Amino acid sequence: MVWIHASRPDIAARARVLAQRIEAAEEGAAVMLTGTGPGLAPPPPDQMAAVRGFLAHWRPDALVWLGGDFRPVLLAECELPREARCLAEIDADGLQIDGGSWMPGVLRPVLSGFGLVLPADAAVATRMRRLGLPPEALGRPGTLGAVPPPLPVRGRDHADLLEALGPRPIWLAAGAPAEEAALLVAAQRHAAHRTHRLLMVAAPATPEEAEPLAAALEAEGLVVRRRAEGEEPDEPTDAYIADGCAEMGLWYRLAPVTYLGGSLTGRACRSPFEAASLGSALLVGPQTDPHGEAARTLRARSALRELSSPDELGPALESLLSPETAARLARSAWDVATEGAEATDAALSFVAAALEREAA
């Protein structure tokens, strides 16, 4: 059991991503998330009886504490050795005891109870050294990653489609609802004027929409093939209907450009981080719920191309089908997606070592 505690709502997403990465890396490991923020359970009150009951019930084997705001009773009663305790996402505001006070005499023993400390920046690292943190416990400054692990792909599927497609240019409509068929067709036809043999891969928003989407594209005059029926994207094919959501990792890897389906019509869209982490340049409309925060992060770094209306999709697609243009945008998105990789890898290695010692 790995226990992750996030002390602030703004790092709840990083806590969830770390949990996903631990579950992916450590077979059979369970992760408990506590703290403040969506999807996190509240920790027990920092009182002896409540804390002891909590720890006796869950019996964690490793602890990753994110963000400071330490709970002295909880940390004192937790019997994990320092080699199984990691502190990360600790900034200047986090160097305080629960209740808001900053007391070096109290903080020193709290910090010394962690075997690995990952300060958010160099200034916090300097402050920790002055507090007497052992040098061997102080990791390199940096925050954890906020982007989930890349979606998987079966290697054989990837190789087979690369061979089937050859040099043919493709683009992906990820999570496309059936009601966007007309605007997808318009974009395909606009871009195909300059990009010969252009293929659209349409991954439906839900499995139930696959056939309505295919029928709507056919009604607009496109030649459509369906992967679920074993059909191949042969030369006459204009649009290829992907087989459900399980293969999204495959299509992001194959398509240099992705339009985030639903973002022009207000339907719930997929996370833009999915494409960003796999090197596909993003076209995104104004409506990005429930992934608005991810879209804002990429937008602030010029890591996606914004669309304000459906009419802009075709020209924007045409522009991004230039390899140089798509590569610049994808590179910016990749930089965002890989931020925090060093701190995340350090935390993962620390947790893995703790679990290995516990199992020995």
Rank of each mutant, 00 (worst) to 15 (best):
F114I: 04
G115S: 08
V117K: 04
A120I: 05
A122T: 13
A122L: 11
A122V: 09
V124L: 06
R127Q: 15
R127F: 00
M128W: 11
M128Q: 14
M128E: 12
R129E: 14
R130W: 10
G132H: 11
L133S: 09
E136V: 12
P141Q: 13
P149C: 06
P149G: 07
P150S: 12
P150W: 09
P152N: 08
E163G: 12
L165H: 09
G166R: 11
R168I: 10
P169V: 05
L172M: 11
L172E: 01
A181R: 01
V185C: 13
A186S: 12
Q188T: 09
Q188H: 15
H190M: 06
H190D: 13
A192H: 08
H193S: 08
H193Y: 01
H196Y: 01
L198W: 05
P204W: 03
P204C: 11
A205R: 15
T206P: 00
P207N: 10
E208C: 01
E209C: 06
E209K: 07
A210F: 09
P212T: 12
L213S: 08
A216S: 14
L217S: 03
A219V: 02
R225A: 15
A228E: 09
E229V: 00
G230V: 04
E231D: 09
P233Q: 11
E235I: 05
D238E: 13
A239K: 03
Y240M: 04
I241D: 00
I241R: 02
A242W: 08
C245F: 14
C245W: 13
E247K: 03
M248D: 02
M248W: 04
L250H: 05
W251D: 02
A255Y: 03
P256G: 00
V257C: 06
V257E: 02
L260H: 02
